[in-house]
Design a protein around this nucleic acid. Structure first.
Length: 954
DNA sequence: TCGTTCACG
DNA sequence: GACGTACGTGAACGAG
């Protein structure tokens, strides 16, 4: 449909307020503030660039608010009465907004007595009625009422098809369609007005009903269908605050309903056809840009790159990475052999005979999706509530095992006894001949391991997704590999949500208290979806080159990491409690001193209050910073103040350190001790970091203090069992070694081969001499290289100006040309293919690598330079972990326990007498972990220590 | 829920 | 000359 019209309506007034608060206070050469104007101009530029895409606008107009008085004030005089006057330095920018709009040769619409929202609504409806698509460029929630497809207009033969209305939030780069609206409000767009009327709006001074916020408002509309429905139902509600408020507030709600209703039939001052976009003439635009000193845009305009103009023929647009995050190519075809998900087909297995039949069916199927339902999220503490199985699409069941037991059930429902069920399932779950598929199956492995079932072999859809698509979806929780998201993306199916089954917050119930019919629908669907995802993702491994990393690294790692989590690590509760006490005391003293110095009491932990005290009350210099307009009070700033003889700064720093250590470590770790095992069991995420690293949560054991003396006391609380020691083995300088090998830097390779001090060698190369200062600078530069260098970043770190930093970078590249070649070729490959690759073939996608947003693009570039190095390091230690326990076993050291992984370090627990023998095995396995798949040009050196605590092992 | 700060590699 | 600083994480806290 190349003749489809697409109208963009830009909500200019709303935009400039956001731009004003988001951008630094720039001024033009004449000294007029133009920050918001600049933001507005770049936004129009961005939209204009979309002219060239198939999705882009064919028509565009900017709508502005003309005056503060509108017809709503005639109805309700307090409408928008709470609005503070616009900030002083924004006022002179309003007229410039019109200039900017004209500079783009775009029509600019404003009408007295009507707000921008009403004009937008009226144009949007008119255009959609004609079958045009409409995009409203705004994030105003009131406008979300308009989103959706217009009904076909059967009575109007001239315009038979309805167009779609959606929204675009250019700041967040988000498209808002009906699904997003429903996600935000819990109701479809046409009912958004009802929700808004109930909740009111303090900014516009729309009263709503007192005490009703978004949550309650949504619930009321969901339950009663409409505002009137909810208000009418109030007298029948059971006695409650809510009921009273609804009864009392009825009038206010009805008034609010009128205020939030958009006027959709306002007379239109211009015909839609006048909004037709052609190429944007560059002279007025160039004049405007140069007048206000927007020289980067001017340069782009002159260079013709990104010059906004509509091409006459729409080339079939080549796939744009930017838009690809929610639909990786080749993923969207429906799977022809799969029927739609039908929850009514799921079976609840409540007797032994039926369970035995299912086991037999699964044995025959050879592929089985498994999901365990439990009372909590902690695999080491949660109780098993039931198990679901799936052997094909819509062939799924739920086996309740511990449902009922509270008074929510009249009587405990019929179910197979836990012990009997597990006996029947054990041979199936342990059968070499049956592949068990799970979504994050490490969790199920651990839950079932506590019932003496060793689930194997396994496949994991979450990890399949990670190995195929890491980095491709940048949004969402779970890194974009959660089941709900995968189901949506690959199956086009919206799953039942856990919170709809178990509730949320205080009212949440454990899964075992869910009624069986509902529990079956939810649990069996999870298994069904998992099975389908596997069918979809697994074949992609082979066709997209994911087999190597999945089969050789990540899949074998699952049982290994599961085992480490079950082992846990002992912590000395008394030692932690003692530290907590000490920290509290010291903090109390510091707090007193700080308050005395400040001359008043305040919350030291509040950066906002602290900033006010330091920079306003006490008058220290160090200005405001950051996008929120708040004073920054971070470590670097406080250290600078301390140097300027601000005694309070050091006290605050010390207080901060103790506060952090106490709340994050000494207190939290005590609470994390598992009462059954007496140890702390972290949970590792295998998809936690885009680069392939693990991450650790609940508690995070990958960030236990080590850098300061006081922090190290916490490490001392990590201890072995009696008669044993902790042993820590870490890769020395592994990322630099990998860089030297991958980028081919002969001097560094040679230094590593000889076991030289690598930073000293770098200093020698760069500065021709080695002393403390040059070595330290060299070290900083070495790390900067690993992270993707920028001269500003390096300048900041070294305390030199950008020119000097640039000179050092030039020097570095001159001495080590391999590094420069590596960076260039890595970026080239990533731009071409969209992803980076480790030596072992792990892909990380960078959808923003060609972003037109400079900050975003440069950020992606730095990440893309770092990813192959960090990722290769992750691959190597993962391979070592997979081989470690069998190697120890072979050496007669089967009782050595591997407890923790911290990116380049492994921690073990073993009898003191075995340290020498185990060290030899550990060093060999870690040192040779890349082989035979990859031969590095540098040796991997391992440092090993042991002792009576984790601290002592270093 | 978001932003800030800070613990680690 | 603008970005407001290097890469990758997770937890706690205050504030709205």
């Amino acid at each position: 449909m190349s003749d489809k019209q697409h109208l963009y309506l830009v909500d200019g007034s709303a935009y400039i307020f956001r731009a004003y608060h988001r951008l630094p206070p720039l001024t033009n050469p004449e000294g007029t503030p133009v920050g918001a104007v600049y933001g507005y101009t770049t936004m129009l530029w961005k939209l204009a660039e979309e002219l060239n895409t198939a999705e882009g606008p064919t028509h565009m107009a900017v709508i502005l608010d003309k005056a503060s008085h509108s017809f709503r004030n005639d109805i309700y005089e307090d409408y928008k009465a709470n609005r503070p006057p616009p900030p002083e330095d924004l006022v002179p920018q309003f007229p410039l907004i019109r200039d900017a709009t004209r500079a783009f040769s775009l029509p600019c619409i404003e009408e007295a007595g009507l707000e921008a929202d009403d004009i937008i609504a009226s144009y949007a409806r008119e255009a959609a009625r004609r079958g045009w698509d409409v995009t409203i460029v705004s994030s105003d929630k009131d406008l979300m009422q308009l989103v959706g497809t217009c009904d076909l207009n059967a009575e109007d033969p001239e315009f038979p098809g309805g167009g779609c209305i959606d929204m675009l939030d250019t700041m967040k780069n988000l498209r808002i369609g009906p699904a997003e609206v429903e996600e935000k409000f819990g109701v479809p767009p046409e009912k958004v007005g009802d929700v808004l009327a109930l909740m009111g709006d303090s900014v516009d001074n729309i009263p709503g009903i007192y005490g009703v916020g978004p949550k309650t408002a949504t619930k009321l509309i969901q339950e009663h269908g409409s505002l009137t429905g909810a208000l009418d139902a109030a007298p029948e509600m059971k006695k409650s605050k809510l009921k009273e408020r609804l009864l009392e507030g009825r009038e206010m709600a009805e008034l609010s309903r009128i205020l939030v209703t958009l006027k959709e039939d306002a007379p239109l001052p211009n015909a839609l056809s006048e909004f037709r976009l052609e190429a944007i003439p560059s002279e007025p635009l160039a004049d405007f840009l140069s007048l206000h000193g927007f020289s980067s845009l001017l340069k782009r305009l002159e260079a013709g790159t990104g010059s906004p103009s509509r091409k006459t023929d729409l080339n079939p647009a080549k796939p744009q990475n930017e838009g690809a995050e929610d639909s990786p190519e080749g993923n969207s075809q429906p799977l022809p052999d799969m029927p739609a998900i039908d929850r009514s087909t799921y079976e609840c297995v409540q007797d032994e005979k039926r369970l035995a039949e299912w086991v037999e069916l699964a044995q025959a199927a050879r592929v089985l999706a498994v999901d365990t339902e439990t009372s909590a999220l902690d695999a080491m503490a949660a109780e098993l509530a039931g198990i679901s199985l799936a052997i094909g699409p819509n062939q799924a069941c739920y086996i309740p095992l511990a449902h009922g037991g509270s008074d929510m059930f009249a009587e405990r429902p019929q179910q197979v006894a836990l012990k009997t069920a597990l006996e029947l399932l054990k041979p199936l779950l342990e059968s070499e001949a049956v592949l068990k598929i799970g979504q994050n199956i490490k969790y199920d492995i651990n839950v079932l391991a506590r019932h003496d079932i060793a689930v194997a072999p396994v496949d994991d859809t979450m990890i399949l997704s990670f190995d195929l698509d890491a980095g491709r979806s940048l949004d969402g929780i779970g890194g974009g590999h959660g089941m709900d998201e995968l189901s949506e993306r690959h199956l086009g199916h919206t799953t039942m949500k856990f919170k709809d089954v178990c509730g949320t917050g205080k009212k949440a119930i454990p899964f075992g208290e869910v009624q069986l019919d509902k529990a079956t629908e939810y649990a069996a669907e999870d298994a069904d979806v998992t099975w389908r995802l596997w069918r979809h993702l697994r074949p992609r491994l082979a066709s997209e080159g994911g087999t190597r990393i999945y089969e050789r690294v990540d899949r074998p790692l699952i049982p290994v990491v599961a085992h480490m989590e079950r082992e846990g690590i002992k912590v000395d509760r008394d030692q932690l409690a003692r530290l907590s006490g000490e920290f509290s005391e010291t903090m109390a003293g510091l707090e007193k001193t700080i308050h005395e110095i400040a001359g008043e009491e305040f919350t030291i932990g509040s950066p906002k209050q602290l900033g006010t005290i330091l920079f306003e009350k006490m008058g220290y210099k160090g200005g405001r910073k950051g996008k929120s307009g708040q004073y920054s009070t971070d470590q670097a700033i406080l250290e600078r103040l301390a140097e300027q003889d601000a005694p309070i700064a050091n006290k605050v720093l010390e207080w901060r350190q103790l506060s952090k250590l106490k709340s994050t470590y000494t207190d939290a770790l005590q609470a994390a001790i598992n009462p059954k095992t007496g140890r702390v069991h972290t949970s590792y995420s295998l998809v936690g970091a885009q680069t392939g690293r693990l991450s650790s949560t609940d508690p995070n054991l990958q960030n236990i203090p080590i850098r300061t003396e006081i922090g190290r006391q916490i490490r001392q609380a990590f201890v072995p069992e009696k008669g044993q020691v902790l042993l820590a083995a870490d890769y020395s300088q592994i990322e630099l070694r990998l860089a030297a090998s991958m980028a081919d830097v002969p001097q560094l390779r040679e230094a590593f081969a000889k076991g030289e001090d690598i930073h000293a060698r770098t200093a020698e190369e760069l500065f021709g001499m080695v002393d403390r200062d040059t070595r330290s600078r060299a070290k900083t530069i070495n790390f900067a290289i690993l992270y993707g260098i920028s001269r500003w970043g390096l300048a900041g770190r070294l305390g030199v100006d950008a020119d000097e930093a640039q000179a050092m970078i030039d020097r570095y590249f001159e001495r080590f040309p391999g590094i420069q070649r590596y960076i260039a070729s890595t970026l080239e490959t990533v731009r071409e293919r969209g992803y980076s690759e480790t030596l072992f073939g792990r892909k990380t996608w960078f959808p923003r690598i060609e972003s037109k947003n400079q900050t975003e693009r440069q950020g992606s570039e730095r990440a893309a330079i770092n990813a192959p190095i960090q990722g290769t390091c992750a691959d190597i230690i993962k391979r070592a972990m997979v081989r470690m326990l069998p190697a120890l076993e072979n050496a007669g050291l089967g009782h050595v326990r591997m407890l923790l992984q911290v990116h380049d370090e492994l921690v073990f627990e073993l009898p003191e007498d075995d340290v020498a023998a185990a060290s030899a095995v550990i060093e060999k396995v870690m040192g040779e972990a890349a082989l035979p798949a990859v031969t590095l040009d540098v040796p991997l050196a391992i440092e090993i220590g042991h002792g009576a605590s984790w601290d002592a092992a270093h």
